[in-house]
């Protein structure tokens, strides 16, 4: 499968990464090489093989419904780039 520069631009936008035309060109080459490697997978016979999302076939443990967290706002917001009145600030959100 070959990847076009327009594909790279599209996925870069989806991933919220800014790429210049020049970067997109180089990335198209890189990603094509990687996809050539990945395409070896197509040779594998996988009919009837269940996809494996986790290395262990374990089941989720469930927590009891208790409140264990206390208010840590000050500590957690000490690393925030922009806060005011306890809120994280971002450029205006338009719905």
């Amino acid at each position: 499968m070959s990847i076009q520069q327009s594909d790279v631009e599209k996925i870069a936008h989806l991933a919220r990464l800014e790429v210049s035309a020049e970067q997109a060109q180089r990335l198209t080459k890189d990603l094509s090489n990687i996809l050539d490697l990945v395409d070896q997978l197509q040779a594998a016979k996988t009919d009837g093989i269940a996809p494996m999302a986790h290395p262990m076939d374990a089941e989720q443990r469930l927590r009891a419904d208790t409140v264990t967290e206390t208010n840590q706002r000050d500590a957690l917001q000490s690393v925030a780039p922009a806060v005011e009145n306890g809120l994280y600030l971002v450029p205006k959100v338009i719905e």
């Binding site: 409140v67 264990t68 208010n71 957690l76 917001q77």
Partner: peptide, 21 residues
């Protein structure tokens, strides 16, 4: 009482981000 993936309270109307772990 608590959130789906954390032990934070789900009470409505708390001060902003005081129930965000």
């Amino acid at each position: 009482k608590s959130k789906i993936f954390s032990g934070s309270s789900t009470t409505f109307g708390a001060e902003p981000n005081t129930q965000a772990s």
